[in-house]
Design a protein around this nucleic acid. Structure first.
Length: 595
RNA sequence: GGGGGUGUAGUUCAGUUGGUUAGAACGCUUGCCUGUCACGCAAGAGGCCGCGAGUUCGAGUCUCGUCACUCCCGCCA
């Protein structure tokens, strides 16, 4: 063990050496990227986390080392000692950081041999995600994934520096904790010491960070794992990381200011990019009106337009009836897209059907007529009104969705994004932020016949709306805010309720009575009654943020060891069955076992 | 829970109308090569066509089921 490294001590990484280092005696260590054996001379590209350096085995330098180099293969781990040498004039490689030099190897130590890897460690060779997840440690050797992980480190470092400079204290909160109400499905952990009882893994440290405010810690932050046992998506993993913060004695504007500073710092450090000093804000209502979604992509226009008032008496009964039944008819003018083929329109119709829109009406504005299955139903006055409202010009195609407001907005908002993608209006290199503010306090669940918090039950309502709590809860707006980047929600937060009475009234509105409230989070109510400062906070999804920064389509590409869509780990084969003895200790009986 | 996509050498893929011996490239092995840089040249090995049924004289190809991965809806800060 004493001579494991063959008396070698690494002097440089594989990215450091330049022509200013010529004649220097160096020791490098790393993996074999490529071996090029020319019989007389052997070239090896030696790779480590930082880069690649060409090393040369020449019998003129050492016959025995050259002989030993014959057995080198891809992904072997080597240590070499040698002299930095200039490459002959036209042999410089301008594609490589270290392309001006090479190392003439005098000593070679093969630390490890390697099996032929399951896939080539080379970005130009595509590999299925299944295999890449199974051999994640190999995938992590590839440049893009490696860079994503390094960028993520740059980001978390920037976060810690920034938060520290702003006076935030990093405090850890429990992972084995109590189920939080109202949110997603919890991951449960059985307690051996208290048989039949379970911890829940936190969906967020929400209650603890509020308790920390009550404890007086002013400004708290944490980069923290959170857990939700729900179905996965490209941007959803069962465990994910939040940049979590909470502040006392502030309003939402101060919180947003601090959050903007944090995002600016991350973009500066990771991408070297200066963002605008402040981000625009839009209310929830305006976002829904203009974009149909509470997370508008502001990289392009194509805004939605409400035409309900124009079509409510139209001969087209589908539209008229929807309006009469409290629905909404909205339209998008796709400028210059009258060239869309029947097939393209059919595809878009199928696209909106996914969001439960029953149809997609359209009108092509031609030189001499409106080409459309529905144009004949409109009077000249209605056509004029549509033309005015939608700014219709020759060459345009306009799409309509008529349905209940939720469906119309969702379907047309998604269609807007789809049109943006199809027309090439969205670029990875553009970052358009917006705050969305004044979310509704509640929405109404038709199946459960009860109100739900849009954010969470600890969110404060707008001062002016508190009176509506007993009369018109659905009209109440909250002091919640989301930060949206390129149509993706990257974070959200709110001013919290710091008054026990108000908190109890809000819980009452949600159908949580005093007994249930006491049982589930009596400790919070008790704490609120023990001197709670005005406070609020915010949490960013670090994975989503990094996904956008790294221009990836999935958060799996910015997580070192992600899970599959069925929440399994292909590398470790988690989850797996528990041994009978373990189950017995936990007093757990598995009733459904699939062989 | 539901809908779509994919599954063929180690890897990425091709495989015609169902037809007898399943191909290519890269990788791998061996040999040659002193200036390559995804080196080159030559030879070679390598297949449960995801799995299971069915139709058929005959299935990589058609049908049904199933599994895995993936995208989305539902669900979900």
């Amino acid at each position: 063990m004493t001579d494991l490294l063959g008396k070698m001590k690494r002097t440089h990484t594989c990215s450091q050496l330049r022509d200013t280092d010529i004649d220097r005696q160096v020791v490098l260590m790393g993996w074999v990227q490529h071996r090029r054996d020319h019989g007389g001379v052997v070239f090896v590209d030696l790779r480590d986390k930082d880069g690649v350096t060409q090393i040369v085995f020449n019998p003129v330098i050492s016959e025995s080392v050259h002989e030993k180099a014959q057995e080198i293969r891809s992904e072997y781990v080597l240590g070499i000692k040698g002299k930095v040498s200039a490459r002959p004039g036209d042999m410089r490689n301008s594609q490589m950081e270290t392309g001006a030099i090479e190392i003439l190897v005098e000593e070679l130590k093969i630390f490890s041999r390697a099996k032929t890897p399951a896939f080539q460690i080379d970005e130009r060779v595509e590999t299925s995600e299944t295999l890449r997840l199974q051999y994640r440690y190999l995938d992590l050797r590839r440049p893009k994934l490696k860079k994503n992980i390094l960028d993520r480190h740059t980001a978390t470092k920037a976060i810690r520096n920034y938060m520290d400079n702003q006076g935030f204290i990093d405090i850890e909160t429990p992972v084995l904790t109590k189920s939080t109400p109202e949110g997603a499905r919890d991951y449960l952990v059985p307690s051996r010491v208290n048989q039949g009882e379970f911890y829940a893994l936190p969906q967020s440290p929400q209650l603890f960070k509020q308790l920390l405010m009550i404890a007086g810690f002013d400004r708290y932050y944490q980069i923290v794992k959170c857990f939700r046992d729900e179905d996965l998506r490209a941007d959803r993993q069962p465990e994910f990381t939040q940049i979590d913060m909470e502040l006392s004695f502030v309003d939402e504007h101060e919180i947003m200011k601090i959050a903007e500073g944090l995002i600016q710092k991350i973009f500066k450090d990771v991408l070297g990019m200066d963002l605008a000093p402040t981000f625009p804000q839009i209310t929830y209502d305006e976002a829904m009106e203009r974009f149909g979604l509470d997370r508008p992509d502001l990289r392009f226009g194509l805004e939605l337009c409400n035409v309900s008032d124009i079509v409510e008496d139209a001969g087209f009964k589908v539209f008229a009836n929807v309006v009469k039944n409290g629905g909404l008819v909205k339209a998008i003018n796709a400028k210059g897209c009258a060239t869309f083929s029947r097939k393209q329109i059919d595809e878009l119709t199928e696209f909106v059907a996914v969001y439960r829109a029953k149809g997609l009406a359209w009108i092509k504005i031609k030189e001499d007529e409106w080409q459309s299955p529905i144009a004949k139903f409109f009077t000249d006055a209605e056509k004029d009104a549509l033309k005015q409202r939608l700014n219709l010009e020759v060459g345009d195609i306009v799409f309509f969705v008529a349905d209940q407001p939720k469906i119309t907005n969702e379907a047309l908002g998604q269609l807007r994004n789809e049109l943006g993608r199809r027309q090439g209006l969205v670029s990875d290199d553009v970052f358009e932020f917006t705050w969305v503010t004044e979310f509704p306090m509640f929405d109404y669940d038709e199946t459960e016949k009860r109100y739900h918090s849009l954010h969470h039950p600890f969110t404060a309502p707008l001062e002016a709306d508190i009176d509506k709590l007993s009369t018109a809860p659905l009209e109440m707006k909250s002091r919640a805010y989301d930060l949206v980047l390129n149509g993706i929600e990257i974070g959200g937060g709110s001013i919290r309720i710091h008054d026990t009475d108000l908190q109890e009234r809000v819980l009452g509105c949600l159908g949580i009575d005093e007994t249930e409230a006491q049982e589930k989070f009596g400790f919070l109510l008790e704490a609120l009654a023990s001197g709670a400062p005005p406070h609020g906070g915010l949490a960013f999804g670090l994975d989503r943020l990094m996904m956008i920064l790294c221009k990836e389509d999935s958060i799996r590409s910015v997580i070192a060891f992600p899970k599959t869509q069925k929440a399994t780990c292909l590398l470790t084969s988690a989850p797996s069955k528990a041994a009978p003895a373990q189950l017995q200790e936990l007093a757990i009986k598995v009733t459904k076992i699939e062989e």
